[in-house]
Design a protein around this nucleic acid. Structure first.
Lengths: 136, 136
DNA sequence: TATAACTGTAACAAATTAAATTACATTAAG
DNA sequence: CTTAATGTAATTTAATTTGTTACAGTTATA
């Protein structure tokens, strides 16, 4: 899944957090990330569904943060963005007639769950407010 | 980076571990994983460079484990396979004229390092021998 | 109320990455 | 010599991610 969606979402949230009170347009945000504004709007849809942001349509519209930055856990953000596992199984179905092939996916999935659990507990220790403090 | 290389490498090592003493051909291994034998051979090249396996060319050749399964840490395997970070930055260079854009990659990279560190310490707690014990 | 500046969304195109395939040289057994 | 393997390069195909275009809907305000 190595796409940049977590980076993009966190960039958006950081900008919104730094500009609390203002409305930021997808064009402005896209200019900071240096990606296409449509991708920003798509990402914002997810952030809105999760209750982190809201947006105002029409002229002078834009996006704004509706949740306290302290309450936006990076673990939650991570889960929102990567609904598929970070580590993936091989695409093909392993040979069910082989003792290893038969059980590998179950065993790998268990391992992956544990590993992702470890990532998430690390991420759960921090939040948007802390991340934003790293900027001027 | 969401490719299945970790899954494939671990599958190969599991088969070799279960068949200690025998030589397994890339065709046989590919049949268990259900992928192309050339991919297996490419993966084996990496495993050999890392000193986990060796292979014998020519008729009746194949691949075999040369390291104790207890000494093959899944964290080391993970690092071998994923030399690029698991979590990735956005592809484009963020706007250096924006205070957030200017610093985001540094801050994200720091976060990613910590998260990957957490994954690796989890993986470091286990090894190939333990993983293999999960199979009949 | 017409225009301009936004968001929302769908449909499509391009670029990138991953996986598979083909081909063939090399090695070793028998 | 023939057969069965690895090693490796080159190419093709498929899948995924990213970008683009287009336009309908919304709202402020001249």
């Amino acid at each position: 899944m190595n796409n940049g969606r977590f980076a993009i979402s966190l960039h958006i949230l950081t900008l919104l957090c730094k500009s609390r009170g203002e409305l930021l347009s997808s064009d402005y945000i896209a200019g900071s990330i240096n990606i296409n504004p449509v991708l920003v709007r798509k990402e914002i849809i997810q952030l809105r569904k999760a209750g982190y942001v809201d947006s105002k349509e029409g002229k002078n519209g834009g996006c704004f943060l509706v949740k306290k930055a302290e309450e936006i856990s990076l673990a939650e953000l991570f889960k929102l963005v990567y609904q598929n596992p970070v580590l993936s199984l091989a695409k093909n179905i392993p040979n069910p007639n082989c003792p290893v092939g038969k059980a590998i996916n179950t065993n790998l999935s268990q391992l992956y769950r544990e590993v992702e659990e470890a990532m998430l507990s690390k991420l759960a220790k921090t939040n948007l407010a802390e991340f934003c403090n790293k900027f001027d």
